[in-house]
Amino acid sequence: MRAYPEAGPTKALPDPSESLDTALSPRPAMPGYVARNEDVLLGFTLPPQFIDRCRQAYLRIPHDPDDGPRQIGVTSASHGEGKTSIALGLATAIAADTLEPTLLLECDLERGSLDRRLGFKRTPGLSDWLDGESRLRVLRAAPLPNLFVIPAGSATIDPARVFYQLSESRLMAELQPRFANIVIDLPPVLDIAYGSLASKLADRIVLVARYGETLVEDLEKVSFLLGRERLCGIILNGTEYRTPNWLRRLL
């Protein structure tokens, strides 16, 4: 875990647009571009039925293309409820369906797990860029040509400061013209103090609850903290109905 930055003048953030342009239209000769083999993730596959449920979820979120890019934040009450999986599933489904540039922005700075799931190096990432220590690293998630990932980067001991920096940066403004769809993997709301601050990155938030584990009371707290108007729905993850289907249909 990285130590607090030394006191001194704040480092200016590198211009994200350079990295973004490089990612969207890779040009090996561009300065600052990391080797192409590192930029493209090895192909990953998600279970089709999982993608399908994520597709069902994003299609139920109202979106008007005239209002700008689709921007969905994914959060949960606590860690371990499947929020990152759902965010990845949503991004994959959207990218596959729309064929538009789609970005998965990993903002769970403390316990980001996309690197383990997709098999890439955790650093450098968003937190490193916000600390001014590296360029913004944008990875393309093969096999889809239009799905990109910005990893969380190094774990930081003061994520609240990093999020503050993030909200002050023009990153989202830079991302929006380049990506028609942005899925933000937000930190959980109740586990961390800055959950509400983090959730301000997205206009529309999807709340992930784990079936049989997440307390309804916690979901109510999250709903209260985020505000009902920003919460566009719940995805109940890990459902494991033991009731026979025919009986469930009757109930």
Partner: peptide, 16 residues
């Protein structure tokens, strides 16, 4: 859930 939180349940994702 939908009743108590007054938000729709967008999807249910089966346990993998």
């Amino acid at each position: 859930l939908a009743g108590r939180l007054s938000v729709p349940v967008l999807a249910t994702v089966p346990l993998l």
